[in-house]
């Protein structure tokens, strides 16, 4: 059982287009679906939206993580999916969240931290990006829920 606990961290580019309101509405729908699906599957995680990119971590039983990831993969609302980390994990990072969310779609200037992070990742310098993304998500989620939609 212990060995069957896995974590996946990935990034992708957002393919949503429209006004901040439209994008916020789409994100809310993505989050609602993901929370609805994740809870019964025993999945937790966090989603970051910044600079028109997604970073997400999923944690739970291996089969559940794989199934959820596959569902996300065939979603046309994103592209350029890059898996930064996938493997057995020791414990949950986001015990409280079926899917925590950080990001502000209406932000006029992108979060500098996220810009730096995504630049690295899509430039293929992602040797330790998985750990970086995870750390960032952890900090942001635990720091405050001010940005949280929903």
């Amino acid at each position: 059982m212990k060995n069957n606990f896995y974590r996946a961290v990935y990034c992708s580019r957002c393919e949503l287009i429209g006004s901040p309101e439209t994008i916020t509405a789409e994100l809310q729908s993505i989050l609602a679906t993901s929370r609805r699906n994740n809870r019964p599957a025993g999945l937790t995680g966090a989603l970051l939206f910044a600079n028109n990119c997604f970073a997400q971590t999923l944690e739970g039983e291996r089969e559940a993580v794989e199934r959820c990831f596959e569902r996300i993969q065939i979603d046309p609302r994103h592209s350029d999916v890059t898996v930064l980390e996938f493997g057995p994990a020791v414990e949950r990072d986001f015990t409280e969240w079926s899917m925590a969310f950080v990001g502000d779609p209406s932000a006029t200037s992108p979060d500098p931290l996220a810009v730096a992070l995504f630049k690295d990742i899509f430039a293929d310098n992602h040797a330790d990006s998985g750990a970086k993304v995870l750390l960032l998500l952890r900090q942001l989620v635990h720091q405050e829920d001010l940005w949280a939609i929903a």
Binding site: Q73, V81, P88
Partner: peptide, 14 residues
């Protein structure tokens, strides 16, 4: 091609 070339998480492997 885009969809089939996206990464797969399968049986614990990438």
């Amino acid at each position: 091609i885009d969809l089939l070339s996206r990464p797969y998480l399968v049986e614990g492997h990438l």
